[in-house]
Amino acid sequence: MGIPFPSLEFFKALQQRTKDEAAAFEKLGYCDTTFGIRVGSELYRVVFEIYECVEVGEGGDPSELDFVLSAPLDLWREMLEAIQANGGADAAHTINTLTHVGDVMKVEYEDPEGHDRLYRFMATIQAFLDEASGLDLEFA
């Protein structure tokens, strides 16, 4: 049985990877942000403190999040499959590429400063998602 996506279990598995790969995440530097990942209508909350992901959760108030990465399930699936195929996002499936011109993935935010945290910590957030390459996933 693989880990279902989307699920809290999936984000917990990524969270654990930031601890297992502590040295790699430390090398990228501090990362202090609480952001959301919205898959279809489901919202997950990811909290980073210092170097690692310290908390993940389901639901919550988007206005308390720095930003929310929002996309339909199909797109997340495409991105995760690319991550799995390439051992990390290929150039066409990085978070920045997906959220830039065309906005296939949306960045929702209320505070421009919260929004800018996506860019300040982009390498860490990308590395966090890239950790899915080692997971056995099952898509809903």
Binding site: A91, A92, T94, N96, T97, H100, V101, D116, Y119, R120, F121, M122, A123, Q126
Partner: peptide, 24 residues
Amino acid sequence: RHLEFVSRNAADTRLATYFVQDAT
């Protein structure tokens, strides 16, 4: 962000990512 978007290789992607972080 745009350079990262149009990048088709790991070197340009990483360079643009660090560029964005520092600028921000």
